[in-house]
Every structure is written in structure tokens, then in C-alpha cells.
Design a protein around this nucleic acid. Structure first.
Lengths: 242, 242
DNA sequence: TTGACTTATATGTCTAGACATATAATCGTG
DNA sequence: CACGATTATATGTCTAGACATATAAGTCAA
């Protein structure tokens, strides 16, 4: 997101092209919806090959600054305001990567015909069976997060027989089911009786909540709610422009 | 971020390569620090040109999943754990985009020599003056968030004379100061007396907290803490694989 | 042992083409 | 005029090279 355009900072051509366009977008000179020049126009303007321009535009597209449409051109996207993007990952990998000892406990597992609440939560009209799983993840024996998950068995039949007493469902799903879309919601709640006990915190203590829904081409796979102790666990992200 | 590797879903080669590597990273098969195969090895394995492999790896690097080092190779990055990436944007634009009426109130503004706490919060050794701003954003007259901000005047001298009684400091900064790096931390707290009053919620009610630090090439620009009512406001992100 | 120099190598960027593909725009027909 | 078929075009992907550049690793001298 650098605004610099001088050759000293942007030695390479494609970065300069990218930065030039980015600047016009960020300053509002090219508002959302504005069509940016066609590749062949930029090729002419910068006197380079199409691949160089394409690399610049592809990166802007990957960063969601522009949207590219075949035959139509490339357009400035509406800014994603305060949208949060959480990389999908399973908690086991997260804790292990922190160099802490990972612990897992299956608290409950139920296989049942989907109730109205289940269908609502999964966002499906009619559902057959679902698996409901509650489990706890800990780091160095300290409760790290509690997980409350629903898996749609019509999308993932194998989940009916998977052994979740040893492997966390998140890890299992990541290995067995590819996903194409996910949605995250972050919010905050105060711990109720059950949550407080599971996380070993006081009733009324703040909790960070992440709700994640995962789809595979319009089929719901799973809905999961993760509860973290809000005053100890923090989600940190650092990112760079340029 | 799809994990699919079948040709039906991943028609193009570079996406398949990217997905294959991503899967190994996300499942933990290739842990942080692991060196992924060299470009020429992937070229041999997939039987394609180097540019195709390079495009796959470049995108993974842009997504911060891997780090590329000349002469050394490409390495799996430490996951930003459950890292949250919040696109920088100001609340005014966010509320307006939701189609709701934006309201703004400056609660307090102080220009002062930086105290020890200020320096600590801004992460600077010695600082001259700072501006401390407290304000409230509302959507359709309902409190949306309270903002508590510190601006380093040695980095942004103009902020001393800016009129924050009408324009929110976030919007002002976005228009006046380019940033190169930002860090976000998300956590949860329960509302204290002052927060509860500002957000018109009960004391002890959950609040979502976003702390944001912004730099411009190693110079701290601003530190801001945003408090949202945790049970009403939600940060949502939807993203796609592929 | 240490520091300076050299070399090998993996990535970084770029080219001038190619064919594929989605789709906006046009044309033709009922 | 409405609607289906055709065409033109911008992007999507890919190739087989090229030279640049940062740097890990090895070499050699003080």
C-alpha cells in the first residue's frame, strides 16, 4: 500500500505500475467502479510487455483493490471497510507453532437428525444428519479455546465414523474435505456458566468469539464457534504496504 | 485457499500447484520454517515452465504463507496464528457504506508533552508532543464505537492544528498521512463505567476491542483503540479459495 | 581464527510471443 | 421489438528463453 512512486523506492517496473494505480485508487482519483486502463493501454504507456502489466494488475486483484472481468476490463473495487480476514488454520497447528504443548479433549459428540436449530445454524433448508461436537484445546495444559461444531453429514458422510476422540475435528476436516468458501464473524461475549468452567475463567469474564462457516461450492460443510478467553488470548495481525 | 486438487475444480496448473503447497502448509505437513521445493524441482515435478511455478509461489508469498529468500529458497512462514487482517479504513466510510446515518462526537482532545504511558503506547523512546483524542462514532444515532487515539506530533505535526471537532481523526489521517505498516490486535473486554456510558451499554457487558498501530517507515504515526459493543457489532469477513 | 574475496545458485524481473475462455456488443431473424 | 447466434475483445494462462541480483557457501590470505 505504499504510495511511493519514485524509482529509488520502486526499482522494478511492475511495482511502479502497481504503485501508480494503487495511489490513484487510495487517493480517490479513481473511485470505486472506475475502469482502470486496459492492459494494452498500460503496455503502451509504460513501454513494456503485457506480462509485466499483468503481474501488477494480478497483485492488485489478489489484494482485492481491483476486480478483473474478462472482456470488460479491470475495475476499482469498493473498499472492504473494516472487514476482517482470518486465515483458516486449525488450532492444533496454531498452538504447536507457538512452541507450546498441545492438548485436546473431546467433551461431547452427538450424531443426530438435524433439528430446526441445526438447519438454521448451517444455513440449509433440509438436512439429514449432523454431528455435533464439543471439545477443548489447551496450550501447556492451560485452556486455550473451546470449540462447538456442527458438521453436515450430507456433505461430509465420512465424519459420521471419524474418531474425534483423538483428532480434533478441525484438523480432520482440513485433511479430508476441501473447502472453497469461508465466512468468519468476530464478536465478544461474557462467559456463561458452562463456558467459564470449560475455559477455567470467571463467569462474566470477557470472551472472544469466532464463528466460522465453511462451504464447498454452495454446500455447507461445517459451522464452528470458537471461544477464547478474551483478556488473555489476542488475535494479532501485522501487515505491510508496498 | 481451496484444498482441492482435482482437475475439475482447479482447471489451471498454477492454481493446482498453489493449492497443493497450501494444503501441505495448512495441514501442518510442512511446518513453519520448512523449506518448500525449489522452483526448478517443482518445474520438474509438474512438467511446466518456471514462470508457472513462480506465479504460484508469488501468490503464496503475497498471501504471507511463505517467505522467499534469494539463493536460500522458499520457506513456510510462521502462521499469523488465528491472525486477523483488518483492512485499514475509517469508521465513517464503514457506517456510510452500510447505508446508515453517520454521527460523530468529539469527546475530548488534549495536546500534551508525551507522558511515559504515551511513549510506551506509541512504542517510541523519546517523543515530543502528542495529541490524545477521544471520540464517539454512531450509526443512526446509536453508539457504534468509541475511539481513543494518540497521534505522535513529531511524525504528524499538522495534527496539532487539525480540527477534529468535525472530522474524525481516522478520516483526517487517512487523507493526510500515508502509512506503510499497521498492526492490529483484537481482544475482548467487559465494559467499565466510562465505556458503558459512552456506548450506552451495561457495565460488565462484553466489548470487542481493536487496537491499531500505524507506522510510516519505522516512524510511529498513531495508536488507536476502538471499542465496539460486543454483542451487537460484529466484524464479518467472507473469502474465497481458488 | 578471522576477515575479505570469489563463486554458485535460487529467486526477481522481463520479453515476445501463443492459445484459451468468458462475455459485451453486434447482427440477424422471427 | 425481442431473442438467439455470432463476433470481437480483454483477460487468463502458459512457454522457453534471458539477464539481474542478493546471498549462502566456499576459498584464501593475513
Amino acid at each position: 500500500m505504499s504510495l511511493a512512486t519514485d524509482a529509488a523506492d520502486q526499482p522494478t517496473l511492475y511495482k511502479r505500475i502497481r504503485a501508480d494505480i494503487e495511489k490513484r485508487i487510495l487517493t480517490g482519483e479513481w473511485p470505486p467502479g472506475h475502469r482502470i486502463p486496459f492492459e494494452h493501454e498500460l503496455v503502451a504507456r509504460y513501454g513494456c510487455s503485457r506480462m509485466t502489466v499483468n503481474k501488477a494488475l494480478s497483485e492488485l486483484a489478489q489484494a482485492d483493490l481491483i476486480e478483473r472481468r474478462r472482456r470488460a476490463g479491470s475495475f476499482v473495487r469498493r473498499p472492504q471497510h473494516l472487514s476482517a480476514v482470518l486465515k483458516i488454520a486449525d488450532i492444533r497447528a496454531e498452538i504447536t507453532a507457538l512452541g507450546r504443548g498441545y492438548g485436546y479433549e473431546l467433551i461431547g459428540r452427538k450424531l443426530r437428525a438435524a433439528t430446526a436449530a441445526d438447519r438454521d445454524r448451517l444455513g440449509v433448508k433440509k438436512a439429514g444428519k449432523v454431528v455435533a461436537i464439543t471439545c477443548r484445546h489447551s496450550a501447556d495444559k492451560v485452556p486455550f479455546a473451546v470449540e462447538d461444531r456442527l458438521i453436515d453429514l450430507s456433505s461430509v458422510p465420512d465424519a459420521a465414523t471419524a474418531d474425534f476422540s483423538r483428532e480434533p475435528p478441525g484438523s480432520w476436516l482440513l485433511h479430508h474435505v476441501p473447502w472453497t468458501e469461508a465466512e468468519h464473524t468476530i464478536s465478544a461475549i461474557v462467559a456463561d456458566d458452562r463456558t467459564a468452567q470449560a475455559l477455567d475463567i470467571a463467569i462474566g469474564a470477557p470472551c472472544l468469539v469466532i464463528d466460522r462457516y465453511t462451504w464447498r461450492s454452495a454446500r455447507t460443510i461445517t459451522a464452528v464457534r470458537l471461544l477464547y478467553p478474551g483478556d488473555s488470548h489476542r488475535l494479532v495481525a501485522r501487515f505491510k504496504g508496498g
